[in-house]
Each structure stands twice: as C-alpha cells, then as structure tokens.
Write a protein that binds this DNA or RNA. Structure first.
Length: 270
DNA sequence: TTCCAGGCGTATC
DNA sequence: GATACGCATGGA
C-alpha cells in the first residue's frame, strides 16, 4: 500500500475507492458527510476524519491519525489489502456486473467490528437509513462510544426505550443475552463456514436470512454471504433468472454491493 | 393523512 | 413450505 505521513495526517493512494460510495451506501451507519465532502466516523471507538485529496489519482487524507492506527485499524477496516481492481476485472466477465462495477467503481466492503455490524443490522430491519443512523447515534451517545456486549449485559427492552428502536429493542436484548452467556460466541461464528454461521446467527430472535447475511458480509468478512432484499430480488429476476454467474463464486457478497447500487440507479433511486 | 423503510415472528393452511 | 399480517417509529 502506498502511503506517506505528513505531520498528523496520512495520505493514502487507493484508486478503487470513493468515499460516498463506500461510507454512505447502507453498509455502515456512523459516517457523516461534512459540508466539504469529507467524512467523519469511527471504527468502534477510534474516530477518523477522511477526505479526498485528488479523485483523479485516488489519493485520500486520513486526518489526525498515526501510522500505528493506519496499520492496526484503518488498513483492515478499509480492506486495503484486497485488490478491488482485480475483483472488478473478474466480475466484469458478466456484462451486467461490468456495468455495475463501472457505475459503482469506488465501493469497498468495510471490515467492521462483528458486534457493531450484527447489532446495527438488527436495528436496520424494516427501517430506513436516516432512522437507523438516529438509533445508533443515540446508542453511541448514551454509552459514550459504541457499547460492547458486556456494556449491554443488563439492558432490557424497557431500559433501551431511550433508543426509540421500537420492536427491535427486544431483538437486541436477545442477541446480547445469547452472546453474553456464551450460548453463541463471535469467534465461533467467525470460524464457521457460511451455512453454519447463518444458522447460528438465526437462533437470535429478530435475525433472519437478510440480517444474518449482512452481519456476516460486513461484520465477519464472509464475502460469500449474499444479502437478498427487495432490490437484489429485482436484480435476480431482471438479469439472473437462472442464478448468479460463475464469476461471482466466493465473492457473491461483493458482487451484491455493486449490483445493489446499479439496480437502484436503473430505477432512479440514486 | 397515509405510506413505507436494505425483515422477521407468528398463525394458518 | 408457502403465504398473510402485525409490528414501533418517524420521515416523506
């Protein structure tokens, strides 16, 4: 990875990256776009301010950070060790995916914290993005950072009323209970292949196929997890009535992100 | 006002 | 196993 340290800032070069496509695309809910087009957000409790230096050569500034944080946190979080150019070339064997990759060229799959992603996607069900951000914002504000499973061990649906999360509060409580008591562990889910990991997550009340696959893709980096929502159903019926093409094998979830944005553009939602 | 949001649990057949 | 319906909340 190309990077250089300039005082308290670090400049990275990553052409297969665009801030709003990656940070404001419904895979993470804590990044806020600033008036100048930069973004402020965090990995769990480590904040970051990131801006575009020059989009034509794919350079970005990570503000007020250190080389240590870059190598220990942001390199993994932004998945900088993965060559998305190569992934896009592979997926572009299919003509619909080629159009999707050209359109959403700057998407990367963020390697989020497992618990944050799981809890965030429990909150996301039957909900819209501004409200999801609001609920997660209240959670972070209440705890002074993103709460761990231990932090939430004593919560009940009633005590979480301040979130105004509606019927989802009891689902969060069930997830905390199962993980706190060790009936489920983040590690065992991480180590399980997709099918077993999905079954484990779905023992949590309020976690069905969609929430499980989003958590596994964005929080456990299982690139073969393929979240199916109304938009992806539309892609499948319009372009892939006989199933996904062979070039998506093993990276179905990454293909899904490109397709999700492409189909929304085709229907005028972006 | 009514509709809907990157779903899921439950009842019913 | 398929399908219908309710669910908390708040923005559009």
């Amino acid at each position: 990875m190309d990077y250089s340290v300039k005082g308290n800032d670090i400049i990275i070069k990553q052409p297969d990256f665009e801030l709003s496509q990656t940070l404001d695309c419904g895979q993470a809910f804590r990044w806020e776009e600033q008036a100048d087009g930069s973004f402020k957000g965090a990995f769990v409790n480590t904040p970051l301010h990131i801006s575009t230096l020059d989009i034509s050569d794919g350079t970005f500034i990570l503000h007020d950070t250190t080389e240590d944080e870059l190598l220990n946190i942001w390199f993994d979080y932004f998945d900088l060790g993965t060559d998305y150019g190569e992934i896009k070339r592979t997926l572009s064997e299919d003509k619909t995916l080629k159009k999707a990759c050209d359109f959403a060229y700057g998407i990367r799959i963020l390697r989020q914290d497992s618990w944050e992603a799981l809890s965030s996607f429990i909150i996301s069900q039957n909900n819209n993005i501004p409200r999801i951000k609001g609920i997660i914002g209240r959670l972070v504000e209440h705890y002074g950072g993103y709460p761990s499973i231990n932090d939430m061990a004593d919560e009940t649906a009633e005590s979480l009323g301040f979130l105004r999360a509606g019927f989802r509060a009891k689902y969060l409580v069930d997830a905390v209970d199962k993980l706190y008591r060790g009936e489920l562990t983040i590690d065992s889910i991480k180590q399980s292949p997709l099918y077993e990991a999905t079954k484990k997550l779905m023992t949590i009340k309020g976690v069905g196929p969609k929430v499980a696959s989003c958590a596994l893709l964005f929080g456990f980096y299982k690139t073969d997890a393929f979240p199916v929502d109304v938009w992806v159903k539309r892609v499948m019926s319009e372009f892939y009535p006989n199933g996904l093409p062979e070039c998506t094998k093993g990276i179905e979830g990454i293909a899904q992100q490109y397709l999700f944005h492409y189909i929304r553009k085709l229907h005028g939602k972006v």
